[in-house]
Design a protein around this nucleic acid. Structure first.
Length: 669
RNA sequence: GCGAGAGUGGCGGAAUUGGUAGACGCGCUAGAUUUAGGAUCUAGUGUCCGUAAGGACGUGGGGGUUCGAGUCCCCCCUUUCGCACCA
């Protein structure tokens, strides 16, 4: 068990330190589930026992008309009266058979049983009945609640079913027609709190409770401690030894790491006794691995193993220094690579939002507290890429079938016609229904990257994935569209080598000076691609390169001053082709060591610029004006345009708007 | 139910963040080249009216703000994801 709950507070607070998408931060906050409130103690009537509850609304204590314990609560037996014992026992048994999950599923109707016992509401001395019900969870708070039906929807529903008293302690607005009222308002029916608003009433009540010894403010988390142990073979063994007397000791450092023993049989073994716990797979490990003698004592190794998380929680640290045999990471390297904010950019799917990313943060904080890492947070910036989605098909039984083998009514593969209208689909002659979802094993709609690589090469695969759309959006895969980027790659190849053949060794570049228009286009492309890569807009960066290459197509030879920067721009997107061309251009070293091209600002400014002209907000002309023209000159030229003149003729000019470098709008009527 | 996001051509998507909607790609149409297929090159391709010039309409639907709205505000619809009795 790992005490992640001890870090709940910091796991929540330190989200302020990182540059992460807000939805992910929100999910983590909800997962940690910090809530502030108070513990309140209720004495049990005719007993020494007390029931402790957690509440975020101590201000509503006067409205607590009954109490509910979770069925598993340890006081249930003590509180139940003989008359109710049987009903209580049967309810508990029923609840025990249901998993937490099942309980949540049929949470529509409230169920419960009266224990026969009573407790005293400490604030007004009233006797209130104690019930048990499965809507109260043993795992959260204290496993017991004070029920305030007036201000809590669940309590209201329960009170309605079992006809329990309801007292409002917050005045709802006059037009309020609902049941439980959870909004703001002044306290009523609440003795010394009457008239106070919620926040003041809470403070006042907590003060009162503390004064009278009924406990104090408290913070509770939804987050639960982490069972970090699995009965599986594949996982890191715990370096822990069990002595014959039940003592536990760690494996000495010089014997680390503990490696899994080679085994043929991985099955866990079950005993004949149905109540005995099963022995994990390592129970079948050879005796010389299982037992180890130290200081004259024979220890047995821990037989459970660690879950997958054991690796994913710290791999980013080990990657910094993965061959280090003495430390998990060299402190100087850790400092250098982790910098001030941790990993510079972590790209991953949202499916990791609350599990991997929360647990890894926890480990990192433990390492930080022990002085092994220098940043409080592991991942400074997080970026969620979208899912790749694809069409999927189910047969009559609702079972997913291999999308690859689905055809339409004309026998054509589904992949070619899936977005066309009036298609019906078949799998092995049986009709199937089409749906759409995340590409993966469960929908059997995955496309093997190996296959795409085989057919088009990995530069094309890489480009296609980037060209699909914005990195953060989920996008549909469409194998048919891959030819587009493949054509681009081949066109680049042909432009520089003059041939479609891979073996072509000719390189068509010249030392001639580049025409000005081409140079300008190059620098615009440099500026666009640089900016787009910086913002991770790979799709538009590729579009800019495609546009630029179309200018090179008619040339017999590409000027070296254009060819080289172009290949450098291409290199992060299609590294293999770029390296090959770079080498053929006569370079012995990889282009990885070249400086990134820089756009010459002076070449980005044109002599003339296009200006759109609107009349009353409707586009009527496009005019070309000198870039340094004055507003008046531009307005004159705009008015002179034939089509514009036609639309303003005979009207009174009300306004003339000019947005520099963009648009002219004449408002006339 | 609660929370977060997304709706733009036949399809994937662009749009310097309030300033020419549809860049780029797929698909489709026509032409050139080719023995043919394929590949390549050129031109076209939101809808409607028009021979054309040009015009009307157009970013899920309805209202609004503005000289100007895919972009801002209000209401609604559809859809994807996450959480789900958390006291």
């Amino acid at each position: 068990m790992l005490r992640i709950t001890a870090y709940g507070d910091r796991l929540e607070r330190d989200l302020d330190l990182v540059d992460w998408p807000e939805p992910v931060k929100l999910m983590q906050r909800n997962w940690v589930g910090r809530s502030e409130g108070a513990h309140v103690t209720f004495p049990v009537v005719d007993s020494e026992d007390t029931i402790e509850v957690f509440t975020t609304r101590p201000d509503t204590l006067f409205g607590a008309t009954y109490m509910v314990l979770a069925p598993e609560h340890p006081l249930v037996d003590a509180i139940s009266t003989p008359a109710q014992a049987e009903a209580v026992a049967s309810y508990r048994q029923k609840a025990a058979r249901q998993s937490d999950r099942d309980r949540m599923i049929d949470s529509k109707t409230k169920t419960g049983v009266f224990t026969g016992g009573f407790a005293i509401n400490p604030v007004n001395g009233e006797r209130i009945p104690v019930w048990i019900a499965d809507y109260v969870l043993m795992g959260y708070g204290t496993g017991a609640i004070m029920a305030v039906p007036g201000q809590d929807t669940r309590d209201w529903e329960f009170a309605e079913v079992f006809d329990l008293p309801i007292v409002r302690t917050v005045q709802p607005p006059a037009d309020f027609e609902g049941k439980a009222y959870t909004g703001q308002g002044p306290a009523i029916n609440s003795g010394f709190l009457d008239g106070l608003h919620i926040e003041d009433a809470k403070t006042r009540m907590i003060d009162w409770l503390e004064e009278h010894g009924h406990r104090r403010r408290a913070i509770t988390y939804k987050l639960r401690d982490w069972l970090f142990s699995r009965q599986r073979y594949w996982g890191e063994p715990f370096p822990i030894l069990h002595g014959p007397d039940g003592t536990i000791r760690a494996v000495p450092e010089d014997q680390l790491p503990v490696e899994l023993p080679p085994m043929d049989d991985f099955r866990p073994s079950a005993s004949d006794d149905p109540d005995a716990p099963p022995t994990p797979p390592l129970g079948r490990a050879p005796e010389d691995w299982r037992f180890i003698e130290m200081d004259g004592v024979r220890y047995e190794r821990e037989l459970n193993t660690m879950p997958q998380w054991a690796g994913s929680c710290w791999y980013y640290l080990r990657f910094i220094d993965n061959t280090n045999g003495s430390d998990f990471v060299d402190p100087a390297l850790e400092k250098y690579w982790m910098g001030d904010h941790g990993v510079d950019l972590y790209v991953g799917g949202v499916e990791h939002a609350v599990l991997h990313l929360l647990y890894a943060r926890f480990w990192h904080k433990v390492l930080y507290d022990l002085g092994h890492v220098s940043t409080p947070e592991p991942f400074g910036r997080l970026f969620n890429q979208g899912y790749i989605q694809a069409f999927a098909y189910r047969d009559a039984r609702g079972i997913a079938v291999a999308a690859d083998d689905v055809v339409d009514q004309d026998g054509r593969p589904a992949a070619e016609v899936q977005d066309k209208p009036d298609r019906s689909f078949f799998y092995q002659g049986e009709p199937v229904t089409q749906e759409y979802g995340k590409m993966g094993k469960s929908l059997k709609n995955a496309v093997s990257p190996d296959e795409i690589n085989e057919r088009f090469g990995c530069d094309t695969l890489r480009l296609y994935e980037m060209y699909l759309g914005p990195l953060d959006a989920s996008k549909p895969w469409n194998t048919r569209d891959i030819v587009g980027v493949n054509r681009f790659i081949r066109r680049v190849w042909r432009v520089f080598t003059g041939s479609d053949e891979e073996a072509a060794d000719r390189i068509r570049i010249s030392d001639a000076e580049s025409p000005e228009a081409l140079t300008r286009a190059l620098h615009k492309t440099i500026a666009k691609v640089t900016d787009d890569l910086e913002g991770m807009r790979f799709n538009t960066a590729i579009a800019a390169l495609i546009e630029f290459v179309s200018l090179l197509v008619p040339l017999d030879e590409v000027p070296r001053s254009v060819a080289e920067p172009f290949v450098l721009l291409l290199s992060p997107l299609a590294p293999h082709v770029a390296e090959e061309l770079w080498s053929r251009m006569g370079h012995a070293e990889s282009l990885a060591y070249e400086a990134w091209p820089e756009a010459d600002e002076s070449l980005l400014v044109e002599d003339t610029m296009p200006i759109a002209v609107q009349v009353n907000g409707k586009l009527r002309a496009n005019i070309q004006v000198p870039s340094d023209a004055s507003k008046d000159a531009i307005l004159d030229q705009a008015r002179a345009d034939e089509n514009v003149a036609r639309h303003i003729e005979g009207k009174t000019m009300r306004r003339e708007i000019y947005v520099p470098g963009r648009i002219v709008n004449f408002v006339a009527n």
